[in-house]
Design a protein around this nucleic acid. Structure first.
Lengths: 155, 155
DNA sequence: GAGTGATGATTGATACGTCAAGCAATCCGG
DNA sequence: CCGGATTGCTTGACGTATCAATCATCACTC
């Protein structure tokens, strides 16, 4: 048993546990909602959002993986499944024969347009509606700062 | 296309996306750390924490599932795997022959005592160290309030 | 006290994420 | 150029999460 551990005070413990519960519950609710009400999962949604943000709806696997913070193998597996459902297609890359593009299909665009209002409404009613603008600002600042720290110091 | 959707303002959008990224990154880091440095996963850790909080280290499947917000089938599968690794044992319930207890073993206690300092240190260095006490208080309040709302209104 | 429904847990199918290994295509130092 | 290292993606195996179906037991009612 280490004696040098900086254990949490009870305030820290309480805040941390609440925060963890929030993540579990909110994340669970949102993805369950998307899953059951639309036909895209939270992961599908994230992919489709990025593809609609980009010219022609085409992006390299690696770029997509970097933006979503996914492993490349996860991207391969997931895109293969999405392609099977017709939401995207895989396209070979001419400039670099190793590479490949993910391209959103019409069905993909239709799926995300159908899911987006639902998702926004859920984010509002499950979260934003219960948080003041000042709190939201604080939360945004904390999130950005911590994410930056995590990026600085890779595991 | 619905016209009545209350789309997010750019401030809301920014804060929300940062928050989601924090969720993804911090969760990923913590569970990866636990996984590689100790021999218990984040899920194992949560189970063991609850069992050490309770008399004799025994608790019913359903109670454990409720506290962790897990599905009962997840609990069954996971406890079966943990039992296979000797961290817990399953025990029949005398009062209700349908029910069963999960009981932490000595090996389970040893595992969590080994993992706890590491976990606390990670929570500090990856998160708490980058947040002021005031921010942490705000975060705790937000979390509690939103969790309460989510509990009120079941999906 | 038999029938009906609810409860506590298990099981199997399927989907998903991660890891390590693999395979091409490309880059680059000599 | 040529050979080894690197890059971009794929694959297979494994552990894990979810869903629906199942089974045994219990509770309630008539």
């Amino acid at each position: 048993m280490e004696n040098s551990v900086r254990w949490l005070t009870s305030e820290e413990q309480h805040a941390w546990r609440s925060f963890v519960r929030l993540h579990e519950k909110l994340g669970g609710r949102l993805s369950r909602l998307l899953q059951t009400e639309s036909k895209v999962s939270a992961a599908d949604f994230a992919v489709l959002v990025h593809l609609t943000d980009v010219p022609e709806g085409r992006q390299r696997y690696q770029d997509l993986a970097r933006e979503l913070e996914w492993e490349k193998s996860r991207m391969s597996h997931h895109i293969a499944r999405m392609a099977g459902r017709g939401l995207v297609v895989r396209e070979d890359c001419l400039e670099d024969a190793r590479g490949a593009f993910v391209v959103i299909t019409e069905a993909g665009r239709a799926a995300i347009e159908a899911a987006a209002p639902l998702h926004v409404e859920a984010v509002r009613s499950l979260f934003l509606d219960h948080v003041t603008p000042a709190e939201l600002r604080t939360l945004g600042e904390i999130s950005e700062r911590v994410v930056a720290k995590l990026d600085e110091d890779p595991s």
